[in-house]
Amino acid sequence: MEIFQYAFMRRAFIVGIILAIIIPCIGVTVVLKRLSMMGDALSHSSLAGVTIGLLLGINPVLGAMISCIVAAFGIEIIRKKIPQHAEIAIAIIMSTGIGIAGVLSGFVKNTANFNSFLFGSIVAISDFELYLVIGIGLIVLLAFILLYKELFFMSFNEKGAELAGVPVGLVNSIFTILIAITVAIAARTVGSLIVSAMMVVPVACAMQWAKSYRQTVVFSALFGVCFMIVGLCLAYYVGLKPGGTIVLTGVAFFMISIMIKKFYRR
């Protein structure tokens, strides 16, 4: 196929499909916890890490991971303090992240450097990013399979899970770190737009059709991969910006799925 003739498109597919599997898997838990804006909040918070990294001379991707982990735990802590309004936690952390990034960016001398770590593009992926995504993909998938039961239980009833003997605190921490690292890397590589949409849109589609938790997870990953492939092909053959195309493909699927379901019910 002509589309695979170029190395940059092959990379886009590899990285895109890996992320399209792991981000919706994480997304199921995130959505069930009513934290749909988490991806957005974390990818913006990671900007703070990038700036700090550039200023202190640490690798900005590492900086992004650290700030994402801090932000994710920050969301957890605030969420526990005001359980009725989990979304407040997200808004506060996101503002903090953007605020820090904005203030500190004034001290970054080289904007090119800054921009290259700030915004990823799925059609321009370096070797380093490719291996990073493959690595994190394996870790997340493994952790997700191992913690499957615990996450399932906790997603619906955290208190009940605790009473049943699930180490809620530990599982929550592991999961939070996983989200943070995934978002930090994915936002650098493919851009925060794809990350925040992939965390929610495939899950929303899957919820229309799935009859169980397991089905929701599997369908979410399948929908994710499907949007990614269709979006990348559209972007390539029609000549569109890839990030937006992938996300809009997902949204279009979601709308069609709602409409089909409406007729189906009648």
Binding site: Y6, F8, M9, A12, N115, F119, S121, V123, A124, G191, L232, A235, Y236, Y237, V238, G239, L240, K241, P242, G243
Partner: peptide, 11 residues
């Protein structure tokens, strides 16, 4: 400067 490239342009 500074806009996301599309794959068609890159090819």
């Amino acid at each position: 400067a500074d806009s996301e490239p599309d794959p068609e342009r890159m090819t």
